[in-house]
């Protein structure tokens, strides 16, 4: 804390003394719900990296919420320099509606612009009193399932698709899958707008028997929020979630942040960032850079992808989550 103050003071003095030499950047990163802890740490690392490299000071500001909601805020005028959201469709929507991001954004960074991946697991209460082992247990009567609202949350859409993929594989058809998720959502008492709200509902309010959660959020709940109160259950099949990142070109350019915004995202692929990513329970793109002890925590399970199973996000979104889509048809609270 003290050191940064000293650095800050030096930077201010330097800025006054040599106005042309050092610049101040304020970067706005609009992100989804469970990345709070990750970016708090990453922002510190990046600020230092950028300072060492260019002498400029960067302050990164964060906004978190359900990915769909966050995308709408950006469409509605929230001036994000970079967006780091839960799924590609939300960034597509920003690109489409505002024209501030080029259509080919996803090919600009490695791994479809996803510096980290994750998946969906179950969080249950200590001792697993309802004996939940796999997706089939979620549709049993009397089991209360917590998941956020797919209309506003990205994680919730991954949850929905994971359940769908499982049922389709298990029972053979889209009709059966629809029946399955209908039953599943009958067991959902509350839809929060973001993953963090759902975590609060499950952990703090004590509502629900099982929480369909981002893997990282489940670990966070397990290790930091209610140590000894919860258990993670790994289903037989889940989905490979790829939360992508991109620069909002026009906004960043306007604010004079284009270069630093690009560097901010590229640096996510550096070995020091990949290490932090694994530490915060995200699956790193380059596992070789992470601490092996961190990697060991990730369970092994069968993961399907949106592209193979659902023909990409555009299609999945239109079929399931657009107005009048499958979700609207099946969810009646």
């Amino acid at each position: 804390m003290k050191l940064t103050t000293i650095f800050g003071t030096i930077a201010t003095v330097a800025a006054i003394a040599f106005p042309a030499a050092a610049k101040d950047h304020t970067l706005l990163n609009v992100s989804y719900d469970p990345t709070r802890e990750l970016y708090v740490e990453y922002n510190k690392v990046f600020t230092k990296y950028w300072k060492d490299k260019t002498g400029d000071t960067v302050i990164v500001q964060q906004s978190h919420g359900g990915a769909g909601k966050q995308a709408r805020a950006v469409i509605d005028g929230l001036e994000a320099d970079v967006v780091t959201l839960a799924l590609a469709y939300d960034i597509d929507a920003i690109a489409e509606r505002t024209g501030r991001i080029p259509a080919n954004w996803q090919s600009r960074l490695p791994n479809n612009s996803a510096p980290y991946t994750s998946t969906i697991v179950f969080l249950v209460r200590k001792g697993n009193p309802k004996g939940i082992k796999d997706w089939d247990d979620l549709v049993k009567p009397g089991v209360s399932v917590i998941t956020p609202n797919p209309k506003t949350s990205g994680g919730a859409r991954w949850n929905f698709l994971a359940a769908w993929a499982y049922a389709k594989k298990q029972y053979g058809s889209d009709e059966k899958a629809k029946e399955f998720v209908t039953k599943l959502y009958k067991n959902v008492p509350v839809l929060d707008s973001g993953a963090r709200g759902s975590t609060i509902t499950f952990v703090q309010r004590g509502i629900g028997d099982v929480f369909l959660s981002w893997e990282n959020e489940a670990f966070l709940a397990l290790n930091e929020l209610g140590a000894g109160k919860f258990e993670i259950v790994v289903p037989s099949l889940s989905i490979l979630a790829e939360p992508p990142v991109t620069v909002v070109d026009k906004t960043a350019k306007k604010k004079g942040n284009l270069e630093v915004a690009q560097a901010y995202l590229e640096h996510l692929y550096s070995s020091e960032a990949q290490r932090i990513i694994a530490k915060h329970y995200y699956r790193p793109f380059k596992p070789e850079d992470a601490d092996p002890a961190d990697l060991k925590r990730f369970p092994k399970l069968e993961l399907v992808t949106v592209d193979e199973e659902f023909g990409g996000w555009q299609k999945a979104q239109k079929t399931h989550f657009a107005d009048g889509g499958t979700f609207d048809q099946i969810y009646k609270p």
Partner: peptide, 12 residues
């Protein structure tokens, strides 16, 4: 009221 119009950007 503020919650509706703010955008919840930390520090901003």
């Amino acid at each position: 009221a503020v919650s509706v119009v703010s955008g919840h950007v930390r520090g901003l």
